[in-house]
């Protein structure tokens, strides 16, 4: 899931300066789970903006705001309210914001910052474990990603800053390489320690990424 959080109020008001009426868009998927852009947050945003003299002409929570066609369809269903607004305020991840902006020439204001692709530990507690690098090494690293969970993304073992299995950048974070080492030891196999890992092929991660599933 894409982890996001609402921008600070001051920053948002700055982005909305000069506007009197906005149409608010939320997302029923990740932003809802992150309590950043679901029904509740869209409603509360509407109330808060009213205090600052900005009215909502309407709102919609799209099932998955990253779905470009669906976002377009939902906006068409609310055409009048959208047309009356000075801008669309989108409470979705950067992907969702761009689904909206690719469906309208109206100004689109993003209300969230997107943080990372996150696993859910428990409700409201998210952890980054994959950075979508396009060149997965997990089969050799006992299912622990050093590209993401090592602060330096090292591929050949820990740096000199590892202390008591903790990361030099933050003692609250475990050293990914220490975890990999311990788990491979329990599995009784050398895994990634059996070879020197070559430099990563960042070319496999096209930027911007595109992928078409063959039918």
């Amino acid at each position: 899931m894409i982890i996001s959080r609402q921008k600070e109020r001051e920053e948002l008001l700055q982005a909305l300066s000069g506007m009197q009426r906005v149409f608010i868009v939320g997302c029923g998927a990740c932003a809802t789970a992150c309590k950043a852009g679901g029904e509740d947050e869209v409603f509360r945003m509407q109330e808060n903006l009213a205090k600052d003299g900005i009215d909502a002409t309407g709102s919609v929570v799209i099932d998955e705001a990253c779905h470009i066609m669906r976002a377009g369809r939902d906006l068409r269903h609310h055409r009048q309210a959208v047309d009356e607004a000075d801008a669309l305020l989108v409470l979705a991840c950067g992907s969702g914001i761009q689904s909206i902006s690719s469906n309208t020439d109206k100004r689109v204001v993003g209300g969230l910052d997107s943080l990372f692709l996150g696993n859910v530990r428990r409700f409201g507690q998210y952890e980054e474990k994959c950075s979508l690098c396009g060149d997965c090494i997990l089969n050799e690293t006992a299912g622990i990603c050093p590209v993401t969970t090592c602060a330096k993304g090292l591929l050949n073992g820990p740096c000199g800053g590892m202390e008591n299995g903790r990361c030099e950048t933050d003692p609250d974070i475990v050293c990914a390489w220490h975890e990999i080492y311990e788990r491979l030891k329990r599995q009784g196999r050398p895994g990634v320690f059996g070879r020197t890992v070559a430099p990563k092929n960042w070319g496999r991660r096209g930027k911007p990424g595109r992928h078409n599933v063959e039918r």
Binding site: K152, G153, L154, L155, N156, G157, C159, T196, V197, A198, P199, K200, W202
Partner: peptide, 13 residues
């Protein structure tokens, strides 16, 4: 931070 290579890979380079 870049870390395109690590120290082992830099030695190889």
């Amino acid at each position: 931070s870049v870390f395109d290579l690590d120290s082992v890979q830099l030695l190889q380079a």
